[in-house]
């Protein structure tokens, strides 16, 4: 579904990615794990058109998308759920969801409104908070809203950046359940996580990034057993 070859990203003097290769298959969860600053977020941002690509190629369903601007990428069926939620904090929960469907609201407003209801069924707490400003939600609720907002555009392919960040373990479990359900509904997911155990438990295939390079790849189960992964995190 998605092929990355030799991807390089640099912000001015800072080279974030030194040429990585990665494949994500339809219907699978692909995980990218690694410690902070390894280049996980840059990879996702390059795919969604937010990071400056300085080399290499990204193909989605056979089409090269490296040069397409961010707002147009969304229309291809890729949605990026950003690190740290990045909600529109002053706007209501409902407005956040509607904006998630922005790319198709011109064509079919009813479908977007139906999707709002569907997402509120998915996370009933969002219905209770419907008119509340997104910034007033708790961390876990914000993550749910961020995921729902991302699903509003009916993506075929989801990029998820650190959905567990700053969340209590119980909520992380719930988020993980939702990710599994999304996979079961046929979506491909590229998951970036610092919490390796969570990610590897979910992933069909996983990549370990270190300092802008892929150092280990394998199935989720393989990597979960690999002591090298722990080393990548805690050294030793």
């Amino acid at each position: 579904m998605l092929q990355i070859r030799g991807l390089k990203v640099a912000y001015g003097h800072i080279q974030a990615l030194h040429g990585i290769d990665l494949d994500a298959k339809a219907g699978e969860i692909t995980a990218i794990i690694g410690s902070n600053g390894a280049g996980k977020t840059s990879t996702l941002m390059a795919i969604s058109g937010l990071a400056p690509i300085t080399g290499g190629e990204i193909k989605f369903e056979g089409q090269t998308i490296s040069a397409i601007p961010a707002h147009a990428i969304t229309r291809l069926g890729i949605t990026h759920i950003l690190e740290g939620r990045q909600l529109f904090a002053d706007q209501s929960v409902e407005d956040n969801l509607i904006l998630g469907g922005y790319s198709r609201i011109g064509k079919d407003k009813a479908a977007v409104m139906a999707a709002v209801e569907r997402e509120m069924d998915r996370f009933p707490i969002l219905r209770q908070r419907r008119k509340q400003q997104a910034g007033t939600l708790s961390g876990g609720e914000q993550q749910m809203l961020a995921m729902s907002r991302g699903l509003m555009s009916e993506p075929k392919f989801l990029l998820m950046d650190e959905p567990s960040m700053g969340l209590a373990p119980l909520i992380v479990q719930e988020i993980a359940r939702t990710i599994r359900m999304l996979k079961d509904s046929g979506r491909a997911i590229l998951l970036v996580e610092q919490m390796a155990a969570v990610a590897l438990g979910l992933a069909d295939r996983a990549y370990v990034l270190e300092s802008g390079k892929v150092t280990i790849t394998g199935t989720g189960a393989e990597l979960a057993r690999d002591p090298e992964v722990k080393r990548a995190y805690l050294g030793g």
């Binding site: 567990s164 373990p169 992380v172 479990q173 993980a176 359940r177 599994r180 996580e193 610092q194 919490m195 390796a196 155990a197 969570v198 438990g201 979910l202 722990k230 995190y233 805690l234 050294g235 030793g236």
Partner: peptide, 22 residues
Amino acid sequence: ATEVRANPKVIEAYLGAPAEGE
């Protein structure tokens, strides 16, 4: 470093508890 690395609380904070589904 050795003590911290072996501390289960630290490992859980970093690597997370395994996902329930697993």
